[in-house]
Amino acid sequence: MQTSLRSLPLLSIPAAGALLLLAGCSTPATYVETGSSQLVVNVGQINIQDFNQAADVMVASLIDNFINAGQCKSSVAGEPALMAISKIVNNTSKQIDTDLLVKKIRIALNRTGRIQTTTTMGLGGAEDPLAADQQKAQEFFEDKKHVRLPDYTLSGKIIEERAKSGSIRQSTYSFQLSLTSRSGVAVWEDAKEITKQGSSSTVGF
């Protein structure tokens, strides 16, 4: 008993050393820029930088092939074309908020000054119910229709494809979007695939 008590301080030295080592190894939380290349990369899920990159490619394609090509037509002269958001299907194994993709596209399109998005009309109800009610009230009091029908609707799908070889896992996420005109024609379409490979999560692209 006496021997074991005497050995206690000796035992506590390696324990303290291990604790110090562990504390030294841990990474303190820091802020990183969301648009930077210092973000955590997971193979099995869509990271924020994947949504950003997909949105970036889609907006560039929309501007390049549709807006800059002079194909974007507004039904009201002198005003930007009006777009409504239709169904964005999530066909991945994870639950995701598709606004992580769509909202960025909407903001970028709005800033082009050529396309605006309606918030009073959409699949499953208005995005802004108060604005929709206000519009209805205005129509009632003025006895006049104010609703402007969208010139275009945006729909799409996010698909996941997985593969594995030994300890290496691979995930491909396909972002597919279509812009449909009032006549039901897909006037613009594009797809962007993002493939990630690895055996564990990492930081950086």
């Binding site: 648009g35 290349s37 930088q49 950003n52 990159q53 960025k104 970028a108």
Partner: peptide
């Protein structure tokens, strides 16, 4: 400033 100003790999 644009929401699209992200690093591309």
């Amino acid at each position: 400033n644009s929401p699209m100003a992200v690093a591309t790999s």
